[in-house]
Design a protein around this nucleic acid. Structure first.
Lengths: 207, 207, 207, 207
DNA sequence: GATGAATGAGTTTTCATTCAT
DNA sequence: GATGAATGAAAACTCATTCAT
């Protein structure tokens, strides 16, 4: 066997192995989506595994091929959504000379995510206000926020941002977006509201 | 048993009954308290009626003398806590000439409530971020907030407060307190933080 | 109230209390009986709780008022049956001057139990040959056998019984009865067989 | 890939396949061994097919290439172990002039098997005390014992062995060994115990 | 009013078995 | 032959609610 054909054989072998190891990725995805939707509508404990399975078009037993149990399912979904959220928030972020410019970019990303990916954002909001996620997963979800914290520190050094705890900065500039999201059925957010809201966020934290 | 002693027995029986009648209000109260605590720790659907009864020192069947069913129980508790919350927020409120002075008073009342009545505040936070309360009770809980809305309108007329939706005003000046409350185990709020926070709240809504 | 009527009232109160504390003893008994029968026929793990409930004429949920879980149920049944077995074995036992006489009495009691209470004896046999009972309950079941061990020690001191481990004495004089019991559908034991068997038991352990 | 290298690949594929063919007997063996161990530790119904497969280093689906279903698997294992047991019991047996000598040889073979092949013997003991084996397989397992029954008949004719049912002879001379086996974790059997035990067995059946 | 034993529908999870690859 | 993902029926157990006392 020459090098070339060996390469092909190895390739075939690998592709076969990967396929079987991954099980069916689409099933896992359906399960994740179904979980988000149903938990949003009914809450974690009012969502039976059987319903999740049905909505995902899968047998109840199949869930347990991808997740250890119900708690593990919701933990994994939480971490995944949180990751996709922070990825979006910092998607094009590169430290520039303007702290305010950087903050505006990140803030508007976060707002865009919460307003476009309503389902995912609602899910996060429920997870974060409820004892349904266990502590380790909660911590895992938090650690992706560091770029924002760094930015704030920089702003404080430069005398642009208030010398207060990051908890306060977060509470008044980021957390309010969640409220608007929750009210999206009562209060329809238009583009001009985004700018109004951004102004309010920046006013609350700037010196 | 002769007639005489029968009479006494009947008397005892009655006094026992009356005793329990007198107790009954305290039973309802114990049930409300137990519900708040248990829902805070485990979530609504992970809190069995039997546990609520046990913590309240009452038989499971007794719950149904005071509440129609589990949903009714949690709805009533929600409305009650919400009422006690708004009562506290506006406790000494009388419209004065200073919009900012009035706002500061209300804001600090709200903050005081959330930091002192942690259990009740956490309960409200979970109710408001979860599909556990039905729509009518939610609306019932909202309508007590009108004095604040009136104050904002006045501030807007006087050109002191931004011309934006009350949803935005609420999101950036009141809602952040909930976040600080939730983090109270991680972030210990001191008196100076209250003033920092109030400044941020006012900065975000003032013109 | 005179002393007499007070007494009656106290009596009434007590009887009410006892009744409610004991739950329904007859339900527990039915459950125990159903467990023995079904485990005998199908084995422990092939016996669903639902079948036990049905045979006991009780709702599945009711089992959990009397037993913590399936393992606890079978443990409790085991201990109870074992106790009733040893009680029968030593029912009229009083140490006499004759070691052999004493042994014969006990041995025949055991044989009588195993041949009359076939269900219970079969159940014990399955428990003792299977990993279905947990270690603590197994030990609990064992400790009632001591009078027999004492008797053997006495017999050994008097030079009547072989100087071997009680495990051996048990294996050859008592354990064989279990085999006869198991074969009772194939081998019908008659009164003369009992005496034959007793002779064999005694011959194996006597010096 | 050129023709040459394709040929090699095909060859490799085939050799892989043949390799697995050769293995197949060993797969069956692994399955049998895994079944014995797991059933000993957990009982039949508490042993999932998937665990048996895992311990045997085989896919769950593979079991069904060798056995029809779970019941068939355990039946076949039972018959095989029983056969290996009786083969050992009578391995060097040739009818001699001495009934007692013949019995001693067989008895000690049986004892040796039970004490050396603890796993297999425990498995048999569980099968024989549990409704896990179906009736046909049970009978199949029994029929290998005939040489011992013949020996007893001869002994009875020669006036050496009690004139009682073979069930009784078996119960008092052979069955006790199973008990000693079961207790092997509590009672450590030493060579001198073997002789003591044999004496007891013979005393119980001899005239 | 108050109790708490009893219920049974509903929940999570397991596992023997199948079948496309 | 061999695999292992997928199935779905059935298991253990929970819990809101009722009702006789």
């Amino acid at each position: 066997m020459n090098v070339h054909s060996f390469f092909i054989v190895a390739l075939l072998y690998n592709s076969a192995k990967m396929k079987s190891n991954l099980k069916s990725n689409s099933k896992r995805e359906s399960l994740v989506k179904a979980t988000i939707q149903l938990v949003n509508n009914n809450g974690f404990h009012a969502t039976p595994m059987s319903k999740i399975a049905k909505m995902a078009g899968v047998s109840p037993g199949t869930i347990y091929l991808y997740f250890e149990n119900k708690q593990d399912l919701v933990n994994q979904v939480y971490i995944e959504v949180k990751r996709s959220f922070t990825r979006f928030a910092f998607k094009d972020y590169k430290e520039s000379t303007s702290v305010e410019g950087d903050f505006e970019k990140i803030w508007k990303n976060i707002a865009e995510f919460k307003l476009k990916e309503v389902e995912e954002a609602l899910f996060l909001s429920q997870c974060d206000n409820t004892p349904m996620i266990d502590e380790p997963s909660r911590k895992e979800g938090l650690k992706h926020l560091s770029p924002l914290l760094e930015l704030w520190k920089r702003g404080q050094k430069e005398g642009l941002i208030k010398q207060v705890s990051p908890y306060l900065l977060y509470a008044f500039s980021i957390y309010p977006i969640s409220f608007l999201l929750q009210q999206h059925e009562r209060f329809d957010i238009k583009p001009e509201n985004i700018n109004e809201a951004y102004e309010m966020a920046w006013n609350s934290i700037k010196i």
